[in-house]
Amino acid sequence: MPSVTFLPVDAPPIIAELLPDMTLMEVALINDVPGIIGMCGGICSCATCHVYVAADWADRLPAMTQEERAMVDALDRAGPTSRLGCQVRLEPGLDGLTVRVALPE
């Protein structure tokens, strides 16, 4: 089964089935990943889906839009591999992707 792994804060890793065409945020909600809230439902306006992508995966994800970039840059906890989970569309090639869940802002 192609999968993505979520590393929540202070909770065991969650290995979730990679559902193509869903977003990382949606797959996190389907698997009840703690810390990913998805408050705005994916319209890029709440950042409650903030994750840090494992360094070796960061370049292999679809590029950020300007809008996602601006949202991420405004976050206090932004890191070099920060992404908004709702803006990352999954495809089979991302089998094995690992992301760490960010603390709330």
Partner: peptide, 18 residues
């Protein structure tokens, strides 16, 4: 308050909120 439930939340959160 940016975390209010006025637009709902989760997958069905208001599409037209912005």
């Amino acid at each position: 308050p940016r975390d209010h439930l006025g637009f709902g939340g989760g997958l069905h959160a208001c599409l037209g909120a912005a």
